Simulated scan of single mutants.
Amino acid sequence: MDYTHSLDEAGEYAQLAVALMDDQRITPHPNNFTVWYNYFSGDHPELKRTLDMLLNSSLALSETRNDQVYRKFCASPYDALPLHIMAEKMEVELGAVLAVIEQTGKGTAAYERTLADTSGALDRAEHADTLRPLVSRLLTETRSMVEQSQYLERRLAESATRIGQLTEELEAARREAMTDALTGLANRKLFDSLLRQNAMDAMETLEPLALLFVDVDHFKRFNDTYGHAVGDQVLKLLGRMLQRNIRGQDVACRFGGEEFAVILPQTSLDNALKVAETIRAQVAGKSIIQRKSGDRLGQITVSVGAAAFVPGEPVRQLMERADQALYLAKNRGRNRVVAETELDPQDLAMVP
């Protein structure tokens, strides 16, 4: 995660986190501390909203719930990968290959000794009757060596296949850990990683970088009226429309709930606004149809906030401006795009 707090700020957040964990009887191990440190720092609005809901409810802040929050908001995209299991399987396969190679090495050494012995015996042989057993022994040892070589080839081929399968399983697990299951877009953990990487790239290349936050208008009301299945259909539709309107280097992410984000490398704020308006107009032009009945359920709209990266700033400041622009779009009536340049300077001054 991206931490840019001063020594005094970090100390204050740490003290507040420890005090709350003590009050709520939460075990203060590193994962739980990370959750509550981020809660008090305010760097992670979605995490804070989730924890506020838990604090205001009658639900106990159990170890399981803390772990769920950590995995959703704080864990690395690679934390969920079963690396130890993959490593164990890989070690077994490599061990089997080494055993076969060792066995074959011993067989090769024995074969070399047989060749040397036979060669010496052939030099000393004076009669045909003496040659016959020597040739027979040589043929027998040669066949054995060929069989061992063929066995090694089969075992290496089998191990190569299994190692290839393990590699595919690892790649599939990596993709799953970084992908939103419903929409197929990048998930929040991958978003955090990619935004930081693109910010570093932008500083190195001096190319622009823009960020869009996209939120479905009145989604809760739509979801409550027509059910979660239809709500999921809406989210999938928006995911597809985001993908259709971005280039290869751009990344569409499901940020959380009905909120999405689009990272636009090498894109100025003006061009980002054009992308945002295209997305907004296309979504507004779509009707939602219930698959089973074919009934038209109406239209959905989205609000979009856009911001441009300022080289050297923490990425949370970029995210905060995009979020504030989205909030302003909602306040202005929804179904519109708002740029950070339309924000009140006083609001921008409040961004830490």
Results as ranks from 00 to 15, higher is better:
residue 343 L to G: 09
residue 144 S to K: 15
residue 168 E to N: 13
residue 325 A to L: 13
residue 223 N to L: 08
residue 323 D to N: 13
residue 80 A to K: 11
residue 118 T to H: 03
residue 179 T to F: 05
residue 33 F to W: 09
residue 94 L to G: 13
residue 277 E to Y: 08
residue 102 E to Y: 09
residue 331 N to S: 10
residue 175 R to Q: 11
residue 91 E to H: 14
residue 323 D to V: 07
residue 67 D to V: 01
residue 249 Q to N: 12
residue 153 E to H: 15
residue 247 R to K: 08
residue 33 F to Y: 03
residue 142 T to D: 05
residue 285 G to I: 13
residue 201 D to P: 07
residue 329 A to V: 02
residue 131 L to N: 05
residue 119 S to T: 15
residue 285 G to V: 06
residue 350 M to Y: 07
residue 186 A to H: 01
residue 296 R to P: 03
residue 38 N to W: 06
residue 171 E to I: 12
residue 32 N to M: 06
residue 279 I to D: 00
residue 28 P to R: 04
residue 330 K to C: 10
residue 70 Y to S: 02
residue 186 A to S: 08
residue 123 D to K: 14
residue 157 A to F: 12
residue 110 A to T: 08
residue 294 G to Y: 10
residue 124 R to S: 14
residue 133 P to D: 03
residue 167 T to C: 07
residue 71 R to P: 01
residue 87 A to V: 15
residue 349 A to K: 03
residue 71 R to A: 10
residue 205 T to L: 15
residue 50 T to F: 11
residue 303 S to Y: 01
residue 202 A to C: 09
residue 216 V to Y: 11
residue 104 T to F: 12
residue 10 A to Y: 09
residue 183 T to V: 02
residue 323 D to C: 01
residue 14 A to D: 11
residue 282 Q to F: 15
residue 339 A to I: 08
residue 285 G to F: 08
residue 208 P to W: 09
residue 113 R to N: 14
residue 26 I to S: 02
residue 10 A to F: 15
residue 285 G to S: 12
residue 174 R to M: 02
residue 59 L to V: 15
residue 307 A to C: 02
residue 352 P to G: 00
residue 96 A to P: 03
residue 331 N to L: 14
residue 9 E to M: 06
residue 215 D to N: 14
residue 37 Y to N: 07
residue 215 D to H: 06
residue 61 L to Q: 03
residue 172 A to F: 04
residue 17 A to T: 06
residue 188 R to L: 05
residue 35 V to N: 03
residue 307 A to I: 04
residue 302 V to I: 14
residue 255 F to C: 02
residue 140 T to W: 08
residue 35 V to I: 12
residue 193 S to H: 08
residue 233 Q to E: 15
residue 275 V to Q: 00
residue 336 R to I: 13
residue 177 A to I: 06
residue 12 E to I: 14
residue 229 A to S: 15
residue 81 L to Q: 07
residue 310 V to N: 10
residue 29 H to A: 12
residue 121 A to N: 11
residue 242 L to W: 01
residue 50 T to R: 07
residue 165 Q to C: 12
residue 160 A to Y: 05
residue 64 T to L: 10
residue 48 K to T: 13
residue 278 T to A: 12
residue 267 T to H: 01
residue 120 G to I: 02
residue 254 R to S: 01
residue 3 Y to N: 08
residue 122 L to R: 03
